Amino acid sequence: MDVRGKVVLVTGASSGIGAETAREFARAGATLALVARNELKLRTLAAEVGKAHVFPADLGDPAAVTAMADHVKATVGVPDVIVNNAGAGLWLFADETTPEQFREQAAVPYLAAGYVTTAFLGDMVRRGSGRIVVVNSPASRIAWPGAFGYTAARWGLRGLVAALRADLRGTGVGVTEIVPGKVSSDYFANNPGSEQRIPRIASIIPTVSPEQVARALVNATRRDRRRTALPVMMRLMLGAAWASPSVTSWLSTVTGARRS
Rank of each mutant, 00 (worst) to 15 (best):
M1Y: 01
R4H: 13
V7S: 11
V10S: 03
T11V: 00
G12Y: 10
S14I: 12
I17H: 09
A22N: 13
R23Y: 02
E24Y: 08
F25H: 06
A26Y: 05
R27W: 08
A33L: 04
V35L: 09
R43Q: 14
L45C: 10
A46W: 10
A46R: 14
A46N: 15
P56H: 14
A57N: 10
L59D: 03
P62M: 00
V65S: 06
M68I: 06
D70Q: 11
H71R: 15
K73N: 07
V78I: 14
A86M: 09
A88G: 08
A88I: 12
G89E: 02
E100W: 05
F102D: 01
A107D: 14
A113W: 03
V116S: 01
F120Q: 07
L121P: 09
D123T: 07
M124W: 04
G130A: 01
R131Q: 15
I132P: 10
V133S: 06
N136E: 02
N136P: 01
S137H: 04
I142F: 10
G146V: 02
A147P: 06
A147D: 11
F148C: 13
G156M: 11
R158E: 01
G159A: 13
L160Q: 10
L160E: 04
A162G: 02
A166R: 15
A166L: 04
A166T: 14
D167T: 06
R169M: 04
G174M: 07
V183N: 03
N191W: 01
R200K: 12
I201P: 00
S203Y: 02
S203F: 01
I205L: 09
T207Q: 03
E211M: 00
V213D: 10
R215G: 06
L217C: 00
L217T: 14
A220P: 05
R222C: 02
R222W: 03
A229Y: 03
P231Q: 03
M234G: 05
L236C: 10
A243V: 07
V247T: 08
T248Y: 03
S252K: 01
T253K: 03
R258N: 12
R258K: 15
S260L: 04
